[in-house]
């Protein structure tokens, strides 16, 4: 064990350990060599594996993601790292119509073991095109696994799992959890094993136990929810925080079990509110816990506006500890339905 700061060194360590064992793994993307994909997810790899395996590709998502798809069909294990999840748009079709679907459409003949790592999330003045989450868009596509780590420990273990998975996986790493110098850090220094390990997909984690209200969250909002829960405790409200960890596959059982226990659920998400993650989670919660819910499920997400640049506007839309606290407190105070 030693201490790691943030999910970025955790992801790069997992990549490193897989690359050491498996010559088929290579890394492709923007600024992946010198700058470790800017937010550190591929940091240090070029020095170790050289430019033949850690490759700055000519710009263009269509090019990079299509190339990864093609390489995967020959048995390679491409890792595509982009500076921002917002840039996936330039290769959207390659993911949505090919990387995601070809295993199915080929009747299982052609696999797409492509791992994509992108930085997402706002709260640092990045402006819309460098702040959006948009993982819900990709979780929506059948055939893509979606990883949304909130801790360094998870980031390493889930990346290792991604690299062993025969399917495409996108790892959405929140910028404010990367632990990179110069970027605000909402995580904590953590003890992370040096030896390789993996964490199975589809297992949510209960980050804090509670009995009055369940807060279901992903990535940075998990950290914010844990802080809000500590604050709620001061008001004698016992909040349970469930970290989704992977959106696809989704651990409905753990989420529903918590919902059944507390009867009140707040879903928190930094992605856009409508037609996305919070709606899907809420559907599953009501389907599995309807008879135990004592209040309608609530949500805190980014209202349906692009992430604005100016600080007061940005702070008004990105879910923060205060908004989570307020909503959870109000939810806990709703009188129970007569049963």
């Amino acid at each position: 064990m030693r201490t790691l700061r943030g999910i970025a060194p955790a992801v790069s360590e997992a990549l490193d350990q897989e690359m050491a064992n498996n010559p088929e793994v290579f890394v492709l993307g923007d600024d992946v060599s010198h700058w470790g994909a800017r937010f550190g997810f591929t940091g240090g790899l070029q020095e170790k594996y050289g430019r033949g395996r850690v490759i700055d590709a000519p710009a263009g998502g269509q090019n990079v993601l299509g190339l990864a798809a093609g390489a995967a069909t020959t048995g390679l294990r491409p890792v595509v790292a982009l500076i921002s999840g917002d840039f996936l748009g330039t290769g959207f079709d390659q993911i949505y119509d090919h990387i995601a679907t070809v295993n199915y459409l080929s009747g299982g003949q052609v696999r797409m073991p492509v791992t994509i790592v992108v930085a997402v999330g706002g709260g640092y003045g990045g402006g819309a095109q460098l702040s959006q989450m948009r993982y819900g868009l990709f979780a929506h596509a059948p055939g893509v696994k979606v990883v949304v780590p909130s801790t360094a420990y998870d980031a390493k273990g889930l990346t290792t799992t991604a690299l062993a998975d025969p399917n495409p996986v996108i790892i959405f790493g929140h910028r404010l959890l990367t632990g990179q110098p110069g970027v605000p850090f909402e995580g904590e220094d953590e003890d992370v094993p040096e030896d390789p390990y993996s964490i199975p997909f589809g297992l949510a984690a209960v980050r804090r136990e509670g009995s009055d209200v369940t807060i279901v969250a992903t990535a940075a909002t998990v950290r914010r929810s844990v802080r809000a829960a500590a604050h709620l405790a001061e008001y004698d409200i016992s909040a349970e925080v469930v970290d989704v960890r992977t959106l696809v596959p989704l651990d409905t059982d753990t989420i529903v079990a918590s919902a059944r226990k507390t009867g009140r659920v707040l879903v928190v998400d930094e992605d856009y509110q409508s037609f996305g993650t919070t709606g899907e989670l809420t559907f599953r919660i009501q389907a599995g816990a309807f008879d135990r819910l004592t209040a309608p499920v609530r949500r805190v997400a980014v209202p349906d506006v692009p992430i604005p640049y100016s600080e007061p506007l940005e702070q008004a839309v990105i879910p923060n500890v205060e908004r989570i606290f307020d909503e959870a407190r109000s939810l806990a105070g709703v009188s129970a339905r007569a049963s």
């Binding site: 710009a59 003045g125 402006g127 095109q129 640049y309």
Partner: peptide, 22 residues
């Protein structure tokens, strides 16, 4: 203040940008 440095627009000057390269 909605766009910021990466998203500069001026309709009167007929000036457009994008932060997504290419």
């Amino acid at each position: 203040g909605k766009g910021g440095e990466l998203h500069l627009f001026d309709r009167n000057r007929r000036f457009l940008t994008s932060g997504v390269v290419g």
